[in-house]
């Protein structure tokens, strides 16, 4: 049986993490191909409904990437994202859903290496957790 390959949906901020991911590519840094990237203009634009939809439709993990605190292109989007993620994680935790499937990370445009490492780490972590229990559940 082939090893479980987790699927990650990445909501990456255009100005930092997405550019960081681009740098990882142009610098030819190797990282697992498990992430599907969705470019957002700002991590503050990631409504938690997208994150939950991804999880309910069977994503094994969701990575939200934003600029470092203080570096947001729109001043404060990442701070707002941080609060929303805190609320989401609290709710998931209350419902006994492993909140560690959702990661919020600050990765700047120059941190291609950090982006690659984060994805690698996350894939390893999700392999340990196993598939998302909601995967392919048509009842929800």
């Amino acid at each position: 049986m082939s090893e479980f390959e987790p699927k990650i949906i990445g909501f990456l901020c255009n100005w930092c993490t997405y550019t960081g991911a681009d740098l990882a590519g142009t610098a030819r840094i190797q990282y697992p191909p498990n992430i599907r990237v969705i470019r957002m203009m700002c991590s503050g634009g990631v409504d938690m409904v997208y994150v939950m939809k991804a999880l309910l439709e069977g994503a094994d993990g969701v990575l939200i990437g934003g600029c470092h605190p203080g570096d947001c292109h729109y001043q404060s989007g990442n701070f707002k994202a941080r609060r929303r993620v805190a609320i989401l994680k609290k709710i998931l935790q209350q419902l006994g859903f492993n909140e560690d499937r959702v990661w919020l990370r600050w990765i700047s445009a120059s941190e291609g290496k950090k982006f690659a490492n984060t994805v690698t780490e996350m894939v390893e972590h999700l392999k340990k957790l196993g598939p998302n229990p909601l995967k392919l559940n048509g009842n929800i």
Binding site: M48, V49, I91, I140
Partner: peptide
Amino acid sequence: TLLFHLTRLNHMS
């Protein structure tokens, strides 16, 4: 349906 309630929890709880 589940997404609906989770969204409400996130947005207004």
